[in-house]
Design a binder for these strands. Structure first.
Lengths: 213, 213
DNA sequence: ATAAAATTGAACGGTTACGTTCAATTAAAA
DNA sequence: TTTTAATTGAACGTAACCGTTCAATTTTAT
């Protein structure tokens, strides 16, 4: 996100109480920013929520923009978790793909993720770097992992693809469809385990059909 | 969006000059809201941009929220255009689907559309009704049209589906993949005509393969 | 215990913005 | 032309918020 000021807030937070406060500040920032967006959130409210003085915030994070960026950074680390199921040998190709698709669905339909998506995208016009940073550390990393998994799957199954990344993209498209859109616009979607499995299965079968040799 | 106050601003705008001003206000509101989001946009700036007094805005649109909602309403009307190619008889199934997919790509990658998406989604937490309204008048209507087209296509081609809406959703998923995501996060994507056609073709062929009898 | 660093509360200046009021002016309808 | 509606500029009250300053206090390292 920022150019060189990595961990602007943490680099000299030796004191244990500082660590604790920084953590609380970031948590409060997340809550406020998620709830109101960047502009409508105030440092004062964040300070109050964190149980911390306003000056403390300014002493660790120089500006509101920076606090936001630092919060995003934390979220990204949290978000770039891997939901690729690796057990290709023990489980069989189709099973693994279905599990992976289910993990994707589970993760992407989470309310917290949706809210994050909303407010972060909105701030892209204000500061394009946050979008760039998020893409690199979230979706892009994820797609790489997925592509790798799919390549292994294709080796073991009777499948092929001339463009693994495009195939991975297609996988995502098949799994999510426009669920993403509905969620972002406030549609309440809580898939039951059965529905999730059904959707994952349908997507995987379609994907395998497309990539059959 | 609103319950009963349809066209709050226009219902007694008999004067021609009023009409003109209302139009300018809405245009200015769109520009400001698109550029800065809801919170960071000020009525004063909108008034200045529209070349209109602040009082005039408040006299036509009671509140900032309402001005935003009215602006969204106008955009939705503008956005719910139909990009389904209807010439099924004259053109052949595959061609029509490819054309439709190309239209989708063309429309959905437009910068204005992306910006609209960003700021509207961000305001969903503040007022869920705008999301609801948009879904009903944009994506939902679109998906219905698409499903209808696809059903006709399946009749004429050797295809089938047990769930036309799910098939339409899949169509969208295959065409867009995660382009939508990249665009929302600021990725510059300007597809050449060739790339667009290639992507559309790939998606349509995949879709037809999945739905073959 | 002592020195250094972190934190606090309170206040401040400056800015921005919402929404309102009002008397004066302009435009349009009859 | 008269009358009615719309528009304007300016000012107002109120509130929020950013970011800073400072002296006083608390926490931590040594």
């Amino acid at each position: 996100m920022a150019d060189t000021d990595d961990n602007l807030a943490i680099e000299r937070a030796d004191r244990p109480s500082s660590q604790r406060k920084i953590t609380k500040i970031l948590a409060a920032a997340r809550a406020e920013f998620f709830g109101n967006g960047f502009s409508a959130s105030s440092i004062e409210a964040i300070a109050a929520r964190a149980g911390v003085s306003k000056v403390t915030i300014y002493s660790w994070f120089k500006t509101k923009e920076n606090l936001f960026a630092e919060m995003v950074k934390g979220e990204c680390a949290h978000l770039s978790q891997n939901f690729v199921d690796e057990n290709l040998e023990s489980k069989g190709v189709r099973e693994v793909l279905i599990d992976t698709a289910e993990n994707m669905l589970d993760f992407l339909t989470r309310d917290e993720r949706v809210r994050f998506d909303r407010i972060l995208a909105a701030e892209v016009s204000r500061d394009p770097r946050v979008g760039q940073y998020f893409l690199d550390n979230g979706p892009r990393a994820l797609l790489q992992n997925l592509a790798k998994l799919l390549e292994s799957a294709m080796d073991q199954g009777k499948m092929q693809s001339s463009d693994p990344i495009a195939s991975a993209e297609m996988f995502v498209g098949l799994v999510m469809g426009h669920l993403d859109l509905l969620l972002r616009y406030g549609e309440k979607i809580d898939l039951t385990a059965d529905q999730r499995r059904a959707r994952a299965t349908r997507a995987v079968d379609a994907w395998m059909l497309i990539h059959q040799k």
